[in-house]
């Protein structure tokens, strides 16, 4: 039961995240930026695990995002995998992770992820894209705080 609980939690988080990404995210735009819910889930869960597991979570998040959006899965998967792998290093730090730390991790991860996405598909106008990236990163960071607080109740006692 103790082994399957984190797995079920993650499965449910990604499944619900994908549904919200598909149905709710377009309605949640602020200043033209919509939240990247699957990236929030991937990064918020990656901080509980080692970088390799974080990379797997990022891969799943990117794959789901590409799938629900019907977009190019490769670039989304690669960027999400890389930033989630990096987020996994948080678990190696000898500190008491607070929810707002995770908010900052998600903010930074979103910025890096979006910058990575610029490489295979450069946007037609760079500055508006960067501005939207910053707004989306702040948005994601704020949303990650309550999500992390929720996930910590089921994931934290079982890891470390």
């Amino acid at each position: 039961m103790s082994r399957i609980r984190p797995f079920l939690t993650l499965f449910f988080a990604f499944w619900l995240g994908a549904a919200l990404q598909l149905a709710a995210a377009p309605h949640m735009t602020i200043a033209g930026a919509a939240p990247d819910i699957l990236l929030i889930v991937a990064l918020s869960s990656a901080v509980f695990f080692q970088p390799t597991i974080g990379a797997v979570l990022g891969f799943v998040g990117g794959l789901l995002h590409g799938g629900v959006a019907g977009a190019d899965t490769s670039s989304l998967t690669i960027s999400s995998t890389l930033v989630s792998y990096a987020a996994g290093y948080v678990s190696r730090l000898d500190l008491d992770v607070r929810p707002w730390y995770v908010g900052l991790v998600v903010l930074a991860g979103t910025v890096v992820s979006h910058l990575l996405l610029m490489i295979p598909a450069p946007p037609p106008e760079t500055w508006p894209y960067l501005r939207a990236t910053i707004v989306a990163a702040m948005y994601n960071g704020v949303l990650a705080i309550p999500l992390y607080a929720l996930m910590r109740r089921t994931l934290r006692p079982k890891v470390n």
């Binding site: 499944w15 994908a18 598909l22 149905a23 794959l63 590409g66 799938g67 019907g70 899965t73």
Partner: peptide, 24 residues
């Protein structure tokens, strides 16, 4: 056509997405 992975993901996500969409 859509690739099988995309079809699988969309098939799994569509029911809860519909619920979320209706609720919204």
């Amino acid at each position: 056509r859509s690739d099988p992975v995309t079809l699988l993901i969309q098939g799994l996500v569509a029911p809860p997405a519909q619920v979320v969409s209706n609720s919204l």
